[in-house]
Design a binder for these strands. Structure first.
Lengths: 209, 209
DNA sequence: AATTCCGGAGAACAGTTGTTAACTGCATGG
DNA sequence: CCATGCAGTTAACAACTGTTCTCCGGAATT
């Protein structure tokens, strides 16, 4: 089992996590580039100077949030695009997984969507890095698919990144429906996304014609 | 010809435009939610209170920037997806038009990409509105295409919005290459985007199979 | 048991922010 | 030509920001 770390480091990680959580909450209504360090510490209930024990700056905290939001997602990616079942089954499963993830971690998804093109360069780069890794992983998964027989590596990566972008777009759409709480709007997103993915799937099947 | 407006209103619009320009420049390195009103007036060389003569807040200014960035783009949209020429020619033309627009108005493109999911709700909504209009216009253009014979209105709109999203993604990719100034990277974006659009085009041709 | 280490607190710093009020000068309309 | 309107200025406000330095208490180390 895991190494038991002293109560000292345990407390440190605890407040560190509290800072991350508070920041994530505050970021639902603003961008990272306007997030103040005092704002975060105030929300946690610690002195402003305590912030420096954990992060160099709010940008640094943002990079940590990227890890938290995307780092644990690599496992899910595989299942999302795995080659089991008919094309329609696979699409339905992918959409369902995305919807579930957005419902489970809305703040994380919002953060990524917002800061992907946001005003803080290190965070932008951290997100791009992770998304590039996602692309590679999806590509590797696609390569296993019999449908990919005869595809060049380049084309596989093109398709993989197309899928990754679609995932983000879909996640963002689900996010908007969460705020309004309208179930029928959510169904609409499912419908549209399904048809989008179906069109891409069709294009994929005839790519080598 | 246009109505000659008094030197009074002319001067007002002049400083208003100066505020918009200065804001757009400042927004290359940060998000709108962290843009201060004093920051903008300082850049223009005018008193902070002068800001209120033109905008209620920086969010208000942001909405005006959305108009400026997207309002004049509707004409270009039509040509981008017009039904003239072979599929490959149309794709090449579209990619070229996007690349040209990004090179001509990089700050506007960056602003839209950044604030589309940014921290300022009114701006987000203004962008969504414009993009929805783009979707409708693209759909109308697609409807003229013989390839769209037999397509439902719903499917046409789905495809149109897929194209709109691809445009934004492509524009954002070109933007990244502008900063680094590497021509070969720009060629790479052209290559990948072309293949993406080709795959979508193929899916489109076999949609009704 | 004595000592070092270190996460966090406290106070103070100069600088910034949005917003209000009362003003000035000049183009405008009667 | 004179009175009104209005874009822009000046001054001041309380509140906020990031950062530094000094200190404290308790866990960790020896």
């Amino acid at each position: 089992m895991s190494h038991t770390l002293g109560i000292r480091q345990a407390q440190k990680q605890k407040t560190r996590q509290a800072l991350l959580d508070a920041a994530l909450g505050l970021l639902e209504g603003q961008s990272l580039s306007s997030l103040g360090l005092r704002e975060v510490t105030r929300a946690v209930g610690v002195a402003p100077t305590a912030f420096y024990r954990h992060f160099r700056s709010t940008a640094d905290l943002g990079v940590a949030l990227v890890e938290e939001a995307l780092g644990s997602l690599h496992a899910m990616i595989r299942v999302t695009v795995s080659a089991d079942g008919t094309p329609d089954e696979r699409i339905a499963r992918a959409v369902e997984l995305i919807a579930g993830h957005v419902a489970a971690h809305p703040a994380h998804v919002r953060f990524i969507a917002r800061e992907r093109h946001g005003g803080v360069r290190p965070v932008r780069e951290a997100i791009q890095d992770q998304l590039a890794r996602f692309g590679e992983e999806v590509k590797r998964e696609l390569a296993k698919d019999p449908l990919s027989r005869g595809w060049s590596d380049d084309d596989l990566l093109m398709l993989a990144n197309l899928y990754v972008d679609q995932m983000l777009i879909t996640a963002s759409l689900f996010l908007d429906t969460l705020e309004k709480g309208a179930q029928d709007q959510r169904d609409e997103v499912v419908r549209i996304t399904t048809r989008r993915l179906r069109l891409i799937s069709i294009g994929r099947q005839h790519w080598l014609d």
